[in-house]
Design a protein around this nucleic acid. Structure first.
Length: 483
DNA sequence: ATAGGGTTAG
């Protein structure tokens, strides 16, 4: 259009082109459009402004997005929503919530699109109390529960450990599309509820909604967490029949499926046969499998591949070191530690956080400053003993056939330390850990269980005080200040 | 004729 000089692009043209750049994350092209906008003085159109804002947000260039946002003289609902969504997308939860509060202060009423970003920010933060508050806000303000917002709520409740609440919401949805079904199936899968996840998948098929690649990630990971090797392979084939090209994540599920079932050799062969080059996660999954089975040589080979792909990640070196330690090869252990030092690779202690009753508990490996550190360690030891008494040494799928549903879930963890680390490092694993504790009959009510979980969460904990947490809820301090 | 939203392996 520009070369042929047929017509000058106007604000409509540029808004469309910016949308295209945002959709395919074409950063360089978008920058050119931005300069075009600037040169031709088209930056006064609100459609072009939000187009630019959304483009930067989708490219995860949040500072540029914010600059565009700050320069908009009259910010409307769309601009606020786009900015909040940008923060939520990259996990800057506090900033997103802060803007949500600010927009209400200046008298802009959020709609269902705004609320989707807010709810998804809560899901990412694992902030159940806040999520419930926002849900109540939605109902009080009679904001429409369309399929997107319902899906966001289902996802939020599932990620925050309330799988039953998620299921209730899902079951009353009038229309469910692929993403709605996927979020329900993934939610059940991360709770270790494989049977339910697979039952929902069958219902999805019956209702003629087509599964996509994310649905199959849910289905496959459900199989992984229940040791269903045969079923996992079956769904892999049916996925291929659906003409869904397996992605790295799907390969990851299969490798994990085989490793957790102690089929390390088969997992290695599977990786060898992959048509795409395995990423660090695939190699690391294999390495963890080797470590758990004490396969020194195989583990060494896998670790070399892993370190080729990702040499600067301390976790990889530590894993290799732990593999040697499990085989009492202390000479090799000190060699790995020396290599780390020589290459300037530093181990950073793992950390995580969970919100319970308005308190934000923060967990750092090796930290002992929590006032209840002693009691927490006792609870941890108790779970350790109970899991061990149930005989959950590195488990196999064969074992799973012999044990009842109750032990099935706890069998996911070889010992309580693994459990603590599992949900200390990965928030989405918390729900699964909750089920383990439930099955161990420690407690009943969901939130009650969450409290206990918070005590088990990691080695030990720093508790932030209530005042600081309130600042977090109100969004009046930025993420950086907070941490 | 134009704008903002949900699901993703370890």
């Amino acid at each position: 259009m520009l070369q042929r000089g047929h017509a000058y692009p106007n604000s409509f043209t540029l808004a469309f082109v910016l949308k295209a750049c945002a959709v395919v994350v074409a950063f360089k092209e978008g920058l050119q459009i931005h300069s075009h906008v600037f040169r031709h003085g088209l930056d006064l159109s609100p459609f072009v402004q939000t187009g630019l804002l959304n483009f930067y947000a989708k490219c995860e260039e949040i500072r540029d997005a914010r600059r565009v946002f700050d320069e908009i003289p009259e910010r409307n609902l769309i601009a606020w929503s786009a900015m909040i969504s940008g923060y939520a997308r990259i996990g800057m939860v506090n900033e997103g919530l802060g803007l949500f509060r600010e927009m209400q202060k200046v008298g802009i009423r959020p709609d269902e699109v705004t609320m989707v970003s807010i709810i998804s920010a809560c899901a990412k933060a694992g902030a159940l109390d806040l999520g419930r508050w926002v849900h109540a806000f939605i109902e009080k303000n009679e904001i429409k529960l369309d399929v997107e917002l319902s899906t966001a709520l289902v996802d939020m409740y599932a990620k925050c450990g309330c799988i039953e609440r998620a299921r209730e919401l899902f079951d009353v949805m009038p229309d469910r599309d692929t993403k709605a079904w996927s979020s329900m199936i993934v939610g059940l899968a991360i709770h270790g509820l494989a049977e339910d996840a697979l039952a929902y998948f069958r219902r999805m098929e019956e209702s003629k909604v087509k599964p996509n690649h994310v649905t199959f990630i849910g289905v496959l990971s459900a199989c992984v967490h229940s040791g269903l090797v045969y079923e996992g392979k079956k769904y892999w084939l049916s996925m291929c029949q659906c003409k869904i090209e397996p992605s790295m994540e799907h390969y990851g599920c299969m490798v994990d499926l085989l490793c957790r079932a102690s089929r390390i050799e088969e997992a290695c062969e599977f990786v060898e046969a992959m048509p795409i080059s395995p990423n660090s996660i695939i190699w690391r999954t294999l390495l963890v499998g080797c470590k758990n089975k004490g396969l020194l040589e195989k583990g060494e080979f896998v670790a070399e591949r892993l370190l080729e792909v990702e040499p600067l990640n301390a976790e990889n070196h530590v894993l290799l070191s732990n593999l040697y330690a499990s085989g009492l090869r202390w000479d090799k252990v000190s060699y790995v530690r020396k290599r780390m030092k020589d290459n300037g690779v530093k181990a950073i202690p793992g950390c995580s956080s969970i919100e319970v009753d308005g308190f934000l508990h923060e967990f750092v490996m090796g930290d002992e400053s929590h006032p209840e550190a002693k009691e927490i360690r006792e609870v941890l030891m108790d779970v350790h003993r109970q899991v061990h008494r149930a005989g959950h040494e590195p488990w196999t799928s064969a074992v799973l056939h012999d044990v009842g549903e109750e032990e099935k879930v706890s069998a996911l963890f070889e010992h309580s330390e693994r459990l603590a680390i599992a949900f200390g490092l990965l928030k989405t694993r918390a729900p699964m850990a909750i089920r383990v504790v439930k099955n161990l009959r420690v407690c009943g009510d969901c939130h009650e269980v969450t409290k206990i979980i918070s005590k088990l969460y990691s080695r030990e904990i720093i508790v932030r005080d209530r005042v600081r947490f309130h600042r977090f809820v109100n969004g009046s301090c930025s993420c950086k200040d907070y941490w």
